[in-house]
C-alpha cells in the first residue's frame, strides 16, 4: 500500500485511541509526518507500527507493548512528561512540544519515590 495513504489511515485509527486518554497528535507536523512514515515502514518490515524510538526484543509480550499508540502501557511515565516517548503524542493542553523534556524510566521512577 501507498505509504502516504497508510500514514493517513494510522492517523485516523490512532486519533480514536489517544483522544479518550487525554492526548493529541503533536502540533509539530513535521515530526508527526516523520514518525508516522517510520511506523509505516516498521509495519511493512515487522508486521506492526511499532514505536520508532524504543527497541524491540523479539519477545511478543515485550514488543506488543510498543505498538503505537503505546500510551496505555506506559501511562504514568508519559503523563509525567506530557508526551509519549517518541513525541508523536502530547497532552491536549500542550501548545509548544519543544518545551517538553524526555524523562527516562529510571528518572521517572526515582521522582515517583521521592513524592
Amino acid at each position: 500500500m501507498d505509504t502516504k495513504k497508510r500514514m493517513g489511515q494510522l492517523r485516523t485509527m490512532f486519533q480514536r485511541v489517544i483522544d479518550p486518554l487525554g492526548y493529541k497528535f503533536s502540533p509539530d507536523e513535521e515530526l508527526v509526518d516523520f514518525l508516522l512514515e517510520q511506523e509505516v515502514t516498521l509495519e511493512k518490515e515487522k508486521g506492526s507500527p511499532f514505536c520508532p524510538c524504543q527497541g524491540l526484543t523479539g519477545e511478543r509480550e515485550h514488543d506488543m507493548q510498543l505498538v503505537c499508540p503505546c500510551i496505555p502501557f506506559h501511562r504514568e511515565h508519559f503523563d509525567a512528561m506530557k508526551r509519549c516517548w517518541c513525541g508523536l503524542y502530547v497532552h491536549k493542553d500542550v501548545d509548544d512540544p519543544d518545551e517538553l523534556v524526555q524523562i527516562s524510566k529510571k528518572e521517572f521512577e526515582a521522582s515517583r519515590k521521592r513524592s
Binding site: 485511541v17 479518550p20 486518554l21 506492526s48 511478543r60 509480550e61 506488543m64 505498538v67 500510551i71 496505555p72 502501557f73 501511562r75
Partner: peptide, 20 residues
C-alpha cells in the same frame, strides 16, 4: 489476535485503560 489488547466482554473496557 493482532496486538494482544484485552477487553472485558461484559463492559467492553480495555484492561489497560478503561477510557477505551
Amino acid at each position: 489476535p493482532c496486538h494482544d489488547w484485552q477487553f472485558d466482554i461484559r463492559s467492553g473496557e480495555f484492561l489497560n485503560a478503561e477510557e477505551i
